[in-house]
Amino acid sequence: MEVKEWIRGAVLVAQRDLSRFWRNIYWLAGQVAMNIADLVIFAVIFRGLVNPAFIPDYIRFITPGILCLAIFISAFSIGREVGIELRREVTQYLVSLPVTRGALVAGRIMGGVLRGFLYQAGFVILAVVLMSMPSVDKWILILTSSFLLALTMSSLSITLSTLTRDFNLQAAIRSLVYFIFFFVSNVFYPEKALAMRLGSAAPIAYYSPMSMAVNLYRFGFNYTTSVDVLFNLAGLIAWATLSLLFAYKVYIRNLTR
């Protein structure tokens, strides 16, 4: 009975976040446009900055990165709303509802995960078209990676938005996180180029959840076979677990004063 109540609460909270996602339709359209612009810009930068010898086919190289970007933008968007709600004190309403704190947080994080999944779906189809059709076990790997990455991004964004009520600071933090994830990772740069450019900062890229996910996608969509699947998968699981625990702690602590 208790468990059923718990799940019901969490599902309804997630549903609320998901339906809001579709209602921010203009914002979403803007993000899609930015995604595509990023794709083009990075492709251009690529030609100039990176030795073409490192990347035989840059569209096929970049497409898994776009999958990461899609998750980031959609799953991370949950934090934007958590932040607005916090400032307008809508959160007081949420914590007054007959739902356990655990179910509330779980529902919110799941809301972010679902946003990530659904938003990414279109780009996954694009990847199949541009790259190749994965086998069943690779599909499982791809979906698992998406889930773990979405979980990490959703949790991180909830944590970061809850840390401060200052909207400008929130926006700055989001930009910084975006920068670190996409410029200090092998999402848009191949590993070799990265090692050259980043020098001693290269380990950051190595342990970035974005790098791990993009490696798994590149493996999944048959771009490359030289990927340590176990290391990257374990790394993503660690990222997801840690950020989940962190989000739970911080959200609860900040919402009930």
């Binding site: 209602r23 921010n24 709303e81 607005i84 004190e89 007081q92 007054s96």
Partner: peptide
Amino acid sequence: VGIAFQEPKAMWI
């Protein structure tokens, strides 16, 4: 318990 807040709790849209 059910509560009707002093400041209505909703997002603008």
